[in-house]
């Protein structure tokens, strides 16, 4: 009996030593990240079409002035050469980041289009724009204060036919400087 108690003590002693002295050499864990990929008009930096010329194509904002636009009513097939068209409020940019719950979390939005494509954008309205018209504009967007973006299509000396242009939108945390 005495012997057994001695043995138990020894085991307890040993366990304690291991417990106190054991560092790890290596550890590995796995963690998950789940993200909902949604359409442009529901995302954090939200792009909502306002004019029928703008629509969502597989969730991506597309501006299309042609009979291929699903909103095409069967008339008004496009713009003619040597004209200038101004469309106010083509789409809205809004700030739907969750960080806004604890106070203002503005973003600085930049929109750019290649120079020489004959297209310029402006933020706000055309007569009193916040930024632009230019091939690159920037403006601050606060939550609950969407900013409309308009377009100027300058078709001077353009060829007849279809023209396609990419627009890139970049947003950075914080108001524009």
């Amino acid at each position: 009996m005495k012997k057994l108690a001695g043995l138990l003590l020894l085991i307890v002693g040993l366990t304690l030593t291991i417990g106190a002295g054991a560092n790890f050499r290596y550890y590995e864990a796995e963690r998950s990240i789940t993200v909902n990929i949604t359409s442009d008009d529901n995302e954090f930096i939200d792009l909502t079409p306002l004019q029928p010329y703008a629509y969502l194509n597989n969730g991506k904002l597309t501006i299309e002035i042609s009979p291929n636009n699903p909103n095409y009513p069967g008339y008004g097939d496009g713009m003619s050469v040597n004209t200038i068209y101004v469309f106010e409020e083509m789409f809205n940019v809004s700030n739907e980041l969750w960080e806004n719950e604890n106070g203002d979390f503005p973003v600085c939005v930049q929109i750019s289009i290649n120079q020489g494509d004959g297209i310029e954008v402006f933020a706000g309205n055309y007569s009193n724009p916040i930024s632009g018209p230019d091939t690159q504009v920037q403006f601050t967007v606060y939550h609950d204060e969407p900013v409309p973006v308009g377009f100027v299509f300058n078709n001077t000396d353009k060829e007849m036919g279809t023209q396609s242009v990419q627009m890139s939108i970049n947003a950075e945390a914080g108001a524009c400087e």
């Binding site: 963690r31 993200v35 909902n36 529901n42 995302e43 954090f44 792009l47 969730g59 806004n100 719950e101």
Partner: peptide
């Protein structure tokens, strides 16, 4: 454990900003 959850099932979801968009 710590999870990043950018969906409506996150308890911090506010009713707006449903996620990220394709091509972004």
């Amino acid at each position: 454990n710590l999870t990043i959850d950018i969906t409506q099932s996150n308890p911090n979801y506010l009713g707006y900003g449903d996620g990220l968009s394709p091509g972004s």
